[in-house]
């Protein structure tokens, strides 16, 4: 079972290592982790996708909550949220294949952000399935390099994940 957690943390150095260390020493599995500051520069938000049974996921939430630097931990339900990931793929482009690859990028509404004689970098934003699909289609051309940001996610509608007032 996969779960997506939105974790508000103090924007201090060392907080990421506390969170990562917690996962390592309690044997929890991180599928992906993305972090950056929020609109409040004192608070960062992590989106962590974890894998485990119900009991493990409950423990992950509770153990995260025990870290003093962790302000709030919320689950993001897939059905009521949007999630996105950004990926950059450097793909082999022999001259005769170039237009075909551009066509694929257009179908996925991806951007070509770098072109050289024998390669291109394609930038794609989407949920995990879309990113995986594009990766599969480009694979036969020869993927030279691939980098993903990890998923970020937000609840739909006006429901917000906010830091509790002091």
């Amino acid at each position: 079972m996969k779960a997506t957690l939105a974790v508000l943390v103090e924007n201090h150095p060392g907080v990421l290592s506390r969170v990562a260390g917690l996962f390592a020493r309690r044997g929890f599995n991180i599928e992906s982790l993305a972090v950056g500051p929020t609109d409040n520069p004192e608070i960062s938000r992590m989106t962590i996708v974890v894998d485990g049974d119900e009991r493990v996921i409950e423990q992950i939430k509770k153990q995260l909550n025990k870290l003093v630097d962790v302000i709030k931990v919320s689950f993001i339900e897939p059905e009521n949220s949007v999630s996105r990931e950004l990926v950059m793929i450097k793909v082999n482009t022999e001259p005769e294949k170039r237009s075909e690859i551009i066509g694929i990028a257009e179908i996925f509404r991806a951007n070509i952000i770098d072109v050289s004689r024998d390669s291109m970098i394609i930038e794609l934003t989407g949920d995990k399935d879309k990113v995986n699909a594009m990766e599969e289609i480009l694979r036969p051309f020869g993927i030279k390099e691939l980098v993903r940001t990890g998923i970020i996610a937000m609840n739909r509608g006006s429901k917000c994940i906010e830091s509790p007032e002091q």
């Binding site: 943390v9 103090e10 870290l67 003093v68 630097d69 962790v70 302000i71 709030k72 830091s163 509790p164 002091q166």
Partner: peptide
């Protein structure tokens, strides 16, 4: 300059 705070304010605790 030393002053000892009277209260603790920790968002995450």
């Amino acid at each position: 300059d030393f002053t000892y705070p009277e209260e603790v304010s920790l968002k995450g605790y």
